[in-house]
Amino acid sequence: MSNTFPPAEGAWRNHYLLMRHGHSLANQEGRIISAQPLGLTGFGLSPRGRAQLDTLLADWRWARPQRILHSDFLRTTETAERVAAHFGLTRTLEPRLRERHFGELEGQSDTRYAEVWALDAQDPTLCQGGVEAVAEVAARMREVIDELERRHRGETILLVSHGDPLQILLTALEGRALSLHREREPLAPASITSLKASLKA
């Protein structure tokens, strides 16, 4: 999947690959794992997730990344480790790419995501039940790209994050209302969305 929707000044300086982590043990168990310490130290990749990454890396169809930043959760760290090892790269922890915090729903069934998304559609600034507001997620995710745009030019940069934060980021980059983030097709585990650079190095 490839998208353009560059920033306000009219062009991306870099080429971004936005990657959702591989299938995780949280996915396997159908649980919401969005906070410390469980997210940092547990619920890493499932056997299915490791197989997904093996397949992805064996048939890599995107530009070779030159830089990898990733959420500090275990499932994203393990995903980034595999990609970094494949390309012989180092990786950088970036906590702002972390999973959206789901507050009081932590550890509960992932069927309860739907309750949060229904509230998101009403008000993207809502923080009910300790859930991180969509607007806050969009701000921290966009901050990462804005910093990379200031510091680098002409690079292919892989950002490894989570489903909800990436969908929120993509909605923000498209200039659409954040309340519509769940109207995007859900990002599959181990999927990559490409944001093409519009300027040459």
Results as ranks from 00 to 15, higher is better:
157 I>R: 09
183 E>Q: 15
97 L>I: 15
116 V>I: 15
201 A>Y: 04
75 R>M: 10
199 L>K: 11
161 S>A: 15
189 P>E: 05
72 D>R: 11
16 Y>T: 03
77 T>A: 04
29 E>L: 11
70 H>E: 00
158 L>K: 11
70 H>R: 09
93 L>D: 14
60 W>T: 12
79 T>I: 12
37 P>N: 01
17 L>D: 14
176 R>Y: 00
180 L>T: 15
171 T>K: 04
184 R>L: 14
90 T>N: 13
177 A>Y: 01
113 Y>E: 03
111 T>Y: 07
63 A>F: 00
72 D>G: 11
54 D>K: 07
165 P>T: 02
178 L>E: 04
65 P>H: 03
64 R>L: 14
179 S>R: 13
138 A>G: 13
178 L>G: 01
114 A>N: 05
65 P>F: 06
147 E>P: 07
200 K>P: 06
137 V>E: 05
186 P>C: 02
112 R>P: 03
127 C>L: 02
78 E>V: 09
27 N>A: 12
78 E>D: 06
62 W>V: 11
117 W>R: 07
134 V>H: 08
152 H>N: 01
62 W>E: 11
130 G>C: 08
146 D>M: 00
108 Q>C: 08
95 P>Y: 14
150 R>L: 15
92 T>V: 15
156 T>C: 13
83 V>D: 13
86 H>Q: 08
87 F>E: 04
159 L>P: 11
106 E>L: 09
141 M>W: 01
100 R>I: 00
84 A>G: 00
112 R>F: 14
120 D>L: 01
49 G>V: 11
42 G>I: 07
117 W>D: 02
67 R>W: 07
61 R>F: 06
10 G>H: 12
60 W>G: 10
36 Q>C: 06
27 N>T: 04
176 R>A: 15
8 A>I: 09
138 A>Q: 05
31 R>T: 04
96 R>M: 03
156 T>A: 13
155 E>R: 03
32 I>L: 04
160 V>K: 01
189 P>M: 10
22 G>Q: 10
13 R>E: 00
121 A>M: 12
77 T>R: 14
160 V>P: 03
89 L>K: 14
49 G>A: 08
188 A>F: 05
88 G>S: 12
187 L>W: 13
76 T>G: 11
24 S>W: 06
161 S>H: 09
154 G>E: 14
187 L>N: 11
39 G>T: 14
155 E>P: 01
33 I>M: 13
106 E>F: 08
190 A>N: 05
118 A>I: 08
102 F>I: 13
167 Q>Y: 02
136 E>V: 11
57 L>Q: 06
